[in-house]
């Protein structure tokens, strides 16, 4: 598995897309920090980027890589290598190279800016952690989709739909249900609904560092009591980890039975 991971990783680092991705973040970080000169608004903008772009890139890249390396995969399948280690190796190769682009691309400008002396460091670390998780989650989901669909167009279609659903439509339905059932107590419902969407969960985790003052109005008590406590932090982290683990487990199941 490590050998395959290594091959995939080096294959990707040689491909220009990881560099494009890396330079995109580098440019973004530099522009935000050095042209904006307000650190907190920069972090807010970055959050918007992370909860939108990172899942999208993770999905597209995952699907693309799977379809592109199909011949290589077939070659590997002919060898006496465990199936799960082939696919997991490829998956981690993609996920790690994407995460590296993200962390280096955003990290370098922030370090250059003198982040370690600033109090925003924890907000920034939170940004990176959620970005990391989102990359892992969405490339895993993308691999799942690609595995289940031989047809490339269909695969891409489903992948984009998945991103659209989790990033936009889910929140729309969420909001609709909140407005529709506003006469009922909705605190617990909204907490649970947030837990089931990794993008929402990451957003809330970052917001708790940034916009806590707004989140504290009205229903503040519930959110603060939940997310502010160690239990809340552990639960939300656990939820994010589950979001990585479940797609991977499903991937293993599918690989075992799949006829290539």
């Amino acid at each position: 598995m490590y050998k395959i991971l290594k091959y995939s990783f080096f294959d990707l680092t040689r491909s220009s897309w990881s560099y494009v991705y890396f330079f995109f973040y580098l440019l973004l970080g530099i522009t935000l920090l050095f042209l904006n000169n307000d650190l907190s608004t920069a972090v807010i903008t970055l959050m918007n980027v992370i909860i939108m772009i990172v899942p999208l890139i993770g999905t597209i890249f995952g699907v693309m890589y799977y379809y592109n390396s199909r011949e290589f995969t077939e070659l590997l399948l002919a060898q006496p290598v465990k199936r799960s280690s082939i696919f997991l190796g490829q998956y981690f190769g993609v996920a790690i190279s994407l995460s590296l682009s993200l962390i280096l691309g955003l990290g370098i400008p922030f370090v250059a800016y003198g982040l370690f002396k600033s109090a925003v460091i924890w907000d920034f670390v939170m940004l990176l952690i959620t970005g990391l998780f989102l990359t892992l989650i969405f490339s895993a989901l993308a691999f799942n989709i690609a595995l289940s669909h031989e047809n490339k167009i269909k695969g891409f279609g489903y992948a984009i739909l998945l991103w659209l659903f989790l990033a936009v439509i889910y929140d729309g339905l969420f909001l609709l249900s909140l407005v529709y059932f506003q006469d009922y107590p909705l605190d617990k419902f909204s907490l649970i609904a947030t837990m089931f969407n990794p993008i929402d969960l990451s957003r809330i985790l970052i917001l708790l560092k940034l916009d806590i003052s707004a989140l504290l109005s009205y229903t503040g008590a519930v959110f603060k009591e939940f997310f502010g406590t160690p239990l809340g932090a552990v639960t939300s982290m656990g939820m994010l980890i589950l979001w990585v683990v479940f797609p991977l487990l499903r991937m293993r199941q599918v690989i075992r039975k799949k006829d290539f």
């Binding site: 929140d171 729309g172 993008i199 929402d200 229903t219």
Partner: peptide
């Protein structure tokens, strides 16, 4: 305006849908 009516909606603060 929405949050005024349904306070719990605050949990969607800064989400993409709300931005749209």
């Amino acid at each position: 305006y929405l949050v005024n009516r349904t306070p719990e909606a605050i949990i969607l603060l800064r989400s993409i849908f709300i931005g749209l």
